[in-house]
């Protein structure tokens, strides 16, 4: 199976702080992964690394068949990241924001309308400035932006945070639909009940390394990050 994310002892530094201290992880195409771990474990860093936004200090990191060390730009166009910051312009309206990001990703007006309909942004909100939206509403706009990208790999950082029940259901629905259409999804979440129902595998991360990796359906615990070819990669140190 060709893996979408392939990390071997990846070290990733934020400033001088090693946010990832040698993470090893494989994610297959179409899988839904739940990333869990305490605050500051390195979940967000792992997601940003997979998006090609952070330099790899050492180790191997390949996403969608591209080495992140050399051609991160190739990766960036094909992934979608929902981060803590929603990445919206406060002074622009909802429609303006979605349109801008859609056009940047070479989408058109049809994409914008479809995406906004799918996340349930009513017409009432379309012309409201983002500055006046609530946190949950901003998340919905960010989800619409995510949909316009037609990405092959979704990286969702706490997608349920700040959303009401309908909003969380919407996130789950979108993830299922995406997985069905072949998109690979990595979700970092503290909302374990919801996310385990969604995920194929649960990957635990702590102190910047992957500490546990469990297949949800079989309950089988793989060696951390399925290290068949390299059994001592994560535990050796």
């Amino acid at each position: 199976m060709r893996s979408v994310v392939h990390l071997r002892d990846a070290v990733c530094v934020l400033g001088r702080f090693p946010a990832l201290a040698g993470a090893t992880l494989d994610v297959g195409a179409g899988e839904v992964i739940l990333l869990q771990g305490p605050n500051g474990a390195g979940k967000s860093t792992l997601l940003r690394l997979c998006a090609g936004l952070l330099p790899v200090q050492s180790g191997t990191a390949e996403v969608l068949g591209h080495d992140l060390g050399t051609d991160a730009r190739q990766v960036r166009r094909r992934v979608a990241l929902l981060g803590h910051g929603v990445g919206l312009y406060e002074d622009l309206t909802v429609t303006d924001n979605v349109t801008f990001w859609a056009r940047a990703a070479a989408g058109d007006a049809g994409d914008v309308a479809a995406a906004m309909a799918r996340v349930g942004l009513e017409a009432r909100l379309a012309d409201v400035e983002v500055a006046r939206l609530s946190a949950g509403q901003r998340r919905r706009v960010a989800l619409a932006v995510l949909l316009t990208r037609h990405a092959e790999l979704w990286l969702l950082d706490e997608p349920h945070a700040g959303l009401d029940v309908q909003g969380r259901d919407l996130v789950d629905r979108l993830v299922r639909q995406a997985a069905k259409s072949g998109v690979t999804v990595v979700v970092a979440s503290h909302d374990l009940d919801r996310s385990t129902a969604l995920a194929d595998r649960i990957v635990s991360i702590a102190g910047g390394v992957v500490t546990d990796d469990v297949d949800v359906r079989s309950g089988r615990r793989g060696e951390p990050a399925g290290t068949i070819d390299d059994p001592e990669s994560a535990d050796a140190r």
Partner: peptide, 17 residues
Amino acid sequence: VTESAPGLTDQLRLSGL
């Protein structure tokens, strides 16, 4: 300053522009 809102530089780099 308009580009420095949280998450914007990330999205800009992901945007494909």
